[in-house]
Simulated assay, not measured.
Amino acid sequence: MHTGLFHTFDLERDGKTLSHLGLPFSVDRSPYFQIKVPICVIRNGEGPSVLLMAGNHGDEYEGELSLARLIRRLDPTRMRGRVTILPLANTPAVLAARRCSPLDGGNLNRAFPGEAQGMPTQRLAHFLETELFPRHDVVFDIHSGGTSMAHLLCALIETNTDPSGHQAALSLMRRLGLPFGFVADNGPAAPTSMGAARRAGAIGLSGEFGGGGATTPESMAATEGAIDNLLLALGVTDAPVFQASQTPASPMRLLALSRQSQAIYAVRRGWFEPAKPLGALVAAGDVAGFLHDLERLDAPEEELRFAEDGVVLSHRLHTMCEAGDCLMQVAEVIA
C-alpha cells in the first residue's frame, strides 16, 4: 500500500479504456497520496502493438498535446492491434511545468531501468522497462527542447549492437517524415527510455519536435504528422488520424551524436550569444557563439568555436549560463 505501482487496466481488452497508474507517495497534505499517471489503451483485435508516450520531461508540450488529442480522436473500430498512450508520463513534472518531478526530483529519462521499491520516478521507470515496454513492438517517446533549449526538428534512435534490431529502428525512423534523424550512442546501460525499449526487446523511437516551453503550428504539425506516419507504417491505421491526407516523406538526413567534443559547455558564469542557427552546416574552427561577462564590462566577449564539423543540433535558449551548462551541440552528418 505504501510503495510499488498499482493499476487496473487490461491490455487485452478491446475498445478504449482510460485509466491511471497509481504510485503511492506520502506527502504532508495527504499521508496516503498516490501520484496518478493517466494511461489509455485502445485495442481492436490482433495486430501491431505500439506505446506512445510524452511528458517524459514535463516542459515539452508537443507530444503531450498531440497524444491527448489522439486519445479523443482514435476510434478503435478504425484501427487494428493496440495503441497504449501515456500522454503525461512524468505527471508531477507536467503539472508543475518542469523538466523533472517536483515531488522526488526525478528525471524520468535518466531513471531507467529504475527500482521497484525506489522513489516514484524510479518505480515508474522500472514498471515501464520490465512490464509495459516488453508487451509492445514499438515505443515512441516524444520530446522537445523544453524550456531552456532550442532543438533541430529530428527523429532519434539509439545504437543497437544487434544489426537486425538497428536496421529495423533505422527503417522505421525514416518513415516518420522528418527532415533529420540522428543516432545517439549512450551504451547498453543507457538510462533513457530508448535504452529501456531496446533492453525490453521493442523498437525504440524518439524525436525532438520543438523547444522553448511552447508550441507552434509547425511543431504541432510535425508531431502529429510523425504519429500518423508511424501508425500507418505499422499498419495500425489505414488513414491519417490528424491530417486530411498523408504527406509524402522527404529523404531524411542522418546525423550522429556520440562524442563529448560535439558539444560546447560553459566553464564559467556568463551570458551566451549563439552565432549559428539550428540546422546550419558548420566546420571545426567556425565561431559558434560568444560568452559575455556583464560583470566585467571592460572584458571583451569570448569567442566559442566548434571542435567538429557537422549540423547545429541544439543551442541553449536562456542567455545567462553557469559552468557546466551545455550551450550548443553539433551532430556529425553520416548520410
Results as ranks from 00 to 15, higher is better:
residue 272 F to V: 07
residue 138 V to C: 08
residue 321 C to A: 09
residue 296 R to N: 15
residue 234 L to G: 08
residue 8 T to V: 09
residue 186 N to M: 14
residue 244 A to S: 11
residue 304 L to H: 09
residue 310 G to W: 00
residue 110 R to Q: 15
residue 262 Q to P: 06
residue 220 M to E: 13
residue 77 T to C: 06
residue 169 A to C: 08
residue 212 G to Q: 02
residue 24 P to N: 11
residue 153 L to F: 04
residue 64 E to H: 09
residue 305 R to A: 13
residue 297 L to H: 12
residue 106 G to N: 12
residue 303 E to L: 14
residue 39 I to T: 06
residue 276 K to S: 08
residue 95 L to D: 12
residue 159 T to R: 15
residue 48 P to K: 14
residue 282 V to E: 03
residue 138 V to A: 10
residue 284 A to N: 11
residue 156 L to V: 12
residue 76 P to C: 08
residue 45 G to H: 12
residue 239 A to P: 06
residue 209 F to N: 03
residue 175 R to P: 00
residue 224 E to P: 03
residue 119 M to V: 11
residue 66 S to R: 05
residue 55 G to F: 03
residue 52 L to T: 04
residue 213 G to C: 03
residue 103 L to H: 07
residue 105 G to L: 09
residue 220 M to Y: 00
residue 284 A to P: 09
residue 271 W to Y: 15
residue 202 A to S: 14
residue 168 A to F: 03
residue 178 L to N: 07
residue 185 D to M: 05
residue 166 H to S: 05
residue 80 R to W: 02
residue 236 V to T: 12
residue 51 L to K: 01
residue 22 G to K: 09
residue 15 G to P: 03
residue 308 E to P: 05
residue 27 V to C: 13
residue 162 D to W: 07
residue 85 I to L: 13
residue 158 E to G: 11
residue 291 L to D: 10
residue 265 Y to F: 15
residue 257 L to F: 10
residue 199 R to Q: 02
residue 107 N to R: 12
residue 50 V to R: 01
residue 307 A to P: 08
residue 88 L to T: 09
residue 6 F to R: 12
residue 35 I to K: 03
residue 277 P to Y: 02
residue 180 F to M: 04
residue 102 P to F: 09
residue 189 A to C: 09
residue 273 E to A: 13
residue 78 R to W: 08
residue 177 G to F: 04
residue 327 L to D: 07
residue 325 D to Y: 13
residue 211 G to Y: 03
residue 125 A to R: 03
residue 276 K to Q: 15
residue 236 V to Q: 05
residue 165 G to I: 05
residue 333 V to T: 13
residue 175 R to G: 04
residue 80 R to A: 05
residue 187 G to N: 07
residue 201 G to P: 05
residue 238 D to Y: 06
residue 318 H to L: 15
residue 23 L to C: 04
residue 296 R to L: 13
residue 137 D to S: 12
residue 96 A to V: 10
residue 125 A to M: 02
residue 36 K to W: 05
residue 172 L to W: 04
residue 121 T to Q: 08
residue 181 G to S: 08
residue 112 F to P: 01
residue 246 Q to V: 14
residue 313 L to P: 06
residue 193 S to V: 03
residue 72 R to P: 04
residue 258 S to I: 04
residue 94 V to Q: 10
